[in-house]
Simulated scan of single mutants.
Amino acid sequence: MRIACLHTADSNVAVFDTVAQQLNLPQGSLHHEVRADLLAAAELARGLTPDIERQTCDALLTLGRGADVVLLTCSTLGPCITAVSANAPVPMIRVDSALAEEATRAGGKVIALCAVETTLAPTARIFTDAAKRSGAEVEIRLVQDAWQLFRAGEHAAYLAKIAAATEDAYQDGATIVALAQASMAGAAALLTQAMKPLTSPASGLIAAMNALRP
């Protein structure tokens, strides 16, 4: 089993490796490529451009030639999966799409938290589409000032802010809180079991394993 992950933040490598261990994936199952330049370009352009989409698709196809399944772990770049899937040699999975399907499956009130503004629109689209199949009520929230902390390398403060926003969302009546970006996953460890959010690394890796099952 070889699962290739395209990341846009170095810190997500450890996040996915940790979740892979928790899911008992064989050691060495994950292969990581980090393309921070793609997210930086999208932030500068305030969203995806045709050139960023082309570069992302090229990176995904290259990874697919040496893997059994490919995970795109950046929610800002998520829409590129639609463009590349038809010509892909292996399954291509958006981790935020897997998250949206899991979060909305049972209906209820789902609040998806985002840390960076460029992911708001793609997250809203993917969660709204998933909610149509279950009748879930979906709200997308931006955690204000969180991304500045992440960019500054203040990861503990970043995760604390995400955890606080998760608590607020549950207190506001959410049935499920979903952390839309992989970098947010560590906040789950700061919360009680009653307020645990769903995270995209776990949802994405489970979807990858399901895609590989005969």
Rank of each mutant, 00 (worst) to 15 (best):
A98D: 00
Q144D: 13
A4G: 08
Q27L: 12
L149K: 13
S11C: 13
P201C: 11
T49E: 11
L71C: 13
A152G: 12
V34D: 04
L39M: 10
A45C: 08
A146E: 03
E167A: 03
L99S: 01
I3H: 02
D129S: 15
T49D: 12
S29G: 08
E117A: 14
I3D: 02
G47C: 05
Q21V: 10
A211L: 10
T128M: 04
L23Y: 02
R65E: 10
A180Y: 10
E167N: 06
L77M: 15
A207Y: 00
R54S: 13
F127W: 05
F127A: 00
D172S: 15
S11V: 15
T192P: 10
L60R: 13
A4R: 01
D68Q: 14
N210D: 14
P50G: 04
A194C: 04
L205E: 05
R141F: 09
G173T: 14
R133T: 15
P201G: 10
A208P: 06
V116F: 03
Q148D: 13
T118C: 09
E53N: 06
G64H: 09
V116D: 00
T18L: 04
M209F: 02
D10A: 08
G108I: 09
Y158C: 05
F127T: 00
A36E: 11
V34L: 04
T119E: 09
H7M: 09
M92G: 01
P214G: 15
R151I: 03
T123N: 03
G107W: 06
A83W: 05
I93T: 00
F16W: 09
E137D: 09
G153S: 02
A59C: 03
G64V: 08
R46C: 03
E53Y: 04
T49Y: 10
D96Y: 05
N87M: 12
D145H: 10
E102T: 06
H31C: 13
V95P: 00
A20H: 01
T8Y: 09
A83M: 05
G108Q: 07
A88W: 00
L77E: 08
M184P: 11
T49F: 11
A45D: 14
Q22M: 10
P89V: 11
L63A: 07
M195Q: 15
R2T: 13
Q55T: 04
A163N: 05
I140V: 15
M92K: 00
C114T: 08
M1C: 06
R125Y: 12
L60V: 14
A131V: 01
A185L: 06
T119G: 05
G78Q: 09
L190A: 12
A178F: 02
A36G: 09
G204S: 06
R213F: 08
T192L: 07
G204R: 05
M184V: 11
S29C: 13
N210C: 08
S200D: 05
A211R: 04
L212Q: 01
V116L: 12
T128V: 02
R65Y: 02
A207K: 00
G47I: 02
F16D: 08
D51G: 03
L44G: 15
A83Q: 15
G64P: 10
R65C: 05
L142P: 07
S75N: 12
L113A: 11
K132D: 09
A180P: 06
A59E: 05
M1I: 07
A188H: 04
A188E: 08
C74E: 07
R125C: 12
T123V: 07
R125Q: 15
L25K: 01
L23E: 01
R35E: 10
C114A: 13
A9G: 02
I111Q: 08
